[in-house]
Amino acid sequence: MINFSNEEMLRFFLENSDDIMVILNEEMETVFLSPSFEKVFQKPLEETLGRKFNEVLINFPSLPLMKPNQKMVIPVVLKELKKSLMLEFQFKPIQVKDRPGRFIFAIGRDVTERELVLKKFKDIAFKEKELNQMKSRFVSMASHEFKTPIATIVSSVMIMQMLLDKDFSDEIKVKLLGHIDKIINQSNRLTSIMSDVLLLEKSIQQDMKLNLKKISIGKFLESLIHDINEENLNRRTVRFFQPQSDKQILTDESMLVHIIRNLIQNALNYSPESSDPEVHLSIIGNFVEIRIKDYGIGIPREEHENIFGSFYRAKNVGNIKGTGLGLNIVQELTKKLKGEIWFKSKEGMGSEFFVSFPVK
Score class of each variant (00 low, 15 high):
242 Q>Y: 13
252 D>Y: 02
93 P>W: 07
9 M>W: 11
269 N>M: 12
85 L>G: 02
281 L>D: 08
38 E>L: 01
52 K>I: 13
318 G>I: 03
162 M>N: 15
65 L>N: 12
311 F>S: 15
130 E>L: 12
260 I>V: 15
357 F>V: 08
303 E>N: 06
101 G>L: 00
6 N>L: 12
126 F>I: 08
75 P>Y: 01
2 I>G: 04
12 F>N: 10
243 P>T: 01
304 H>R: 10
330 V>P: 03
15 E>Y: 03
170 D>F: 05
360 K>N: 12
300 P>N: 00
357 F>E: 09
327 L>D: 02
269 N>A: 11
271 S>Q: 00
114 R>G: 06
45 L>I: 03
71 K>M: 10
168 F>Q: 13
267 A>C: 00
205 Q>G: 07
256 L>S: 00
16 N>V: 03
324 G>V: 03
91 F>M: 03
26 E>W: 01
166 K>D: 15
146 F>T: 09
95 Q>F: 09
319 N>W: 09
95 Q>E: 13
357 F>S: 06
188 N>H: 14
198 L>W: 05
305 E>C: 05
19 D>Q: 08
63 L>T: 02
207 D>Y: 07
72 M>K: 07
333 L>R: 13
80 E>R: 15
63 L>M: 05
204 I>Q: 11
205 Q>N: 13
128 E>M: 10
354 F>R: 13
304 H>W: 10
17 S>H: 04
185 N>Y: 07
66 M>Q: 04
316 N>Q: 12
132 N>I: 10
303 E>T: 05
185 N>H: 08
233 L>I: 08
157 V>S: 15
344 K>Y: 09
321 K>Y: 13
308 F>L: 03
226 H>G: 01
263 L>D: 05
273 E>H: 09
127 K>G: 06
30 T>S: 04
175 K>H: 13
276 D>H: 09
230 E>Q: 15
139 V>H: 13
298 G>Q: 01
223 S>N: 08
44 P>V: 07
18 D>N: 11
306 N>F: 14
207 D>W: 06
261 R>G: 02
163 L>R: 08
43 K>S: 13
196 D>F: 13
36 S>W: 00
84 S>K: 14
242 Q>K: 15
19 D>K: 09
319 N>R: 12
300 P>R: 00
325 L>P: 02
319 N>Y: 11
237 T>N: 12
359 V>Q: 10
186 Q>G: 04
138 F>L: 11
359 V>R: 06
165 D>N: 09
348 G>T: 00
172 I>L: 11
334 T>L: 03
55 E>C: 02
328 N>I: 01
299 I>A: 00
257 V>I: 12
178 G>H: 01
181 D>W: 09
312 Y>M: 02
83 K>G: 06
81 L>W: 07
235 R>E: 14
56 V>T: 12
219 K>V: 10
69 N>G: 05
77 V>I: 15
67 K>T: 13
230 E>D: 14
282 S>G: 05
110 D>W: 02
351 S>N: 01
330 V>N: 07
335 K>C: 09
356 S>Q: 15
